[in-house]
Design a protein around this nucleic acid. Sequence first.
RNA 1: GGCCCUAUAGUUCAACGGAUAGAACGGAAGUUUCCUAAACUUUAAAUCCAGGUUCGAUUCCUGGUGGGGCUACCA
Length: 608
Amino acid sequence: MKFLYLCGVTTTRMIEQLLARQTSEALKKLYGDGPSPGEVSVEKTRKEQEGDFTIIAFPFTRYSKKSPESTGQELGAYLKQAVPEIREAGVIKGFLNLILDDSFWIRFLEENIGDPRFGLPEPSGKDPVLVEFSSPNTNKPLHLGHIRNNLLGYSLSEILKAAGHRVIRLNLVNDRGIHICKSMLAYQKWGNGETPQSAGMKSDHLIGKYYVLFDRKYKEEIAALVSRGMEPEEAEKQAPLILEAQELLVKWENNDPETRALWEQMNRWAYEGFGETYRRLGIVFDNTEYESQVYLMGKDIVRKGMQEGHFIRKEDGSIWADLTGYGADEKLLLRADGTSVYITQDLGTAENRYRHYHPSVMIYVVGNEQIYHFEVLKKVLTRLGKDWAEKIYHLSYGMVELPEGKMKSREGTVVDADDLIGEMEETAERTTRELGKANEMEESEAKQLFHTIGMGALKYFILKVDPKKNMLFDPQESIDFNGNTGPFIQYTYARIQSLLRKAGEAGYAAGGSGSGPYNLLPGEKRIIKLIYRFPETLQQAALQLSPALIANHIYELAKEYNQFYQEVPVLKAEDPAAIGFRVKLSFFAGEIIRRSMALLGIGVPQRM
RNA sequence: GGCCCUAUAGUUCAACGGAUAGAACGGAAGUUUCCUAAACUUUAAAUCCAGGUUCGAUUCCUGGUGGGGCUACCA
């Protein structure tokens, strides 16, 4: 993301920087000219090949005027001389593979194992990054799409914090607008004073019931009008229910006491329900904004812009921005009846945030169906001379699709958030009990474990996918607990903790240092290298705003550790030095797993 | 119509312009006198099509084709 900067470079990448610098010097010395160190890319060697780092010789042939092979040979010979950490340098098809001495990797482990801030750069102290996410409508309960939004927003915030940014998590509640009036109207007409208690429903679900009811009755009215010969488009505008909802909106904006009282009651129900869902998901915010409190600011901006001649007023009194010269169409900013639309309040919130927080970046975690909306928002702000409009970044994530297609709240084809959370916990409980793993647990510990595993499965399932891509969720197949999943990683962690408990009993310290020379097994080295790359992955995840990178990395580590665990004895090793080293390696791997999972908002159990 | 996103094993997902395109699930075959088998090992299976740029393209560009989204006085 172009607005973000790196907060700091962690010390662990120093060997790559050293290699790049030496390569640059080598080429200049050998051939008289060469790239700057920044132009040299030092990559990790592919898994199938032997080596730790790879430098590609092809780009250097323009300096050497020789084949990639001999260029690589000469460079390799130079580097081996210049860098004592290099044990071997071999060239295969123009790829210079460097093998570092085991002592380098062991020293890395020793130096960082006790550092709780390993991989974390110093906090930048610069202007904060705002992350807006969740932003629910108060007219219906949360569904699977919101879950993706919440998990992404929360995880990104954690990642950005870890990468050294000051982060402010914002929730903007869409608590006003025509959509709210629809549920309110349906409740007025057909609610008979029903309450969550009397209905025995979670409060936000009760509101959703009336939103769906409105839509059903509204569609009936449209159908009736159409059957009497009206054009469908016209019928949608003339149906009595929609006209009534519009009246209700005007009343609301004019502070009609009765309307406001109903609105407040229904919103309270919505917040109660959302609060419960957030709690179960483990989502928190630093601040909550309410659209009802900022939309007037948006109206003012529009009025002022109108006076200054930036906008146009149509015959019916509605106000529009003419963006036809800017790669967009005309965009409505205020309705003819003076009430505000979606973008009106977004103009207000943006201005409000900019003044209040002086952010370096404003990230909006909002679905990709709103790409156009944010383009227009930025264009309108720019039009008004707000040069900070460029600080707005729309993180547009893909939709969660069901096998039959897109979810539609109004038509009831949604995967409800609360239901899904409940099902995940139930599945976790069933699976755990079948495996007999809860047998010796206290009931409270078991309950906590089911929650941890269930949420781990759900969160990992969603966050491992690249945010910008659409993803598929098939309720029939449910979310797996084996393979590339949250529970797999949690299980790996639990195994490590079990091992460490036993190691402690046997007198082996996990965090200490001071082992002697040691020949690394291939599996051990692969684990160390994955730990070594954690800081880099964190930076990449922050830069690309992608929790998926963390998820992929941690899966690699868990997989690698499981293989090691299976094939290499730790506590039963012959050599005490080997036991000591492997205990330490296990401890460090466990820490990286725990911390990475925390970046995804996922907890890890001590046993499972 | 216009604009935007997307296309990889049967399925769900990976791959800073680099080597033989990786995993998982599902399929086939194995591993438990040994630190937790929610694990591990082996195996079959894929870059939508046609051009272009490059030493090198799944990746970048152009044109097709398929899928999705936006283009609301909904948010």
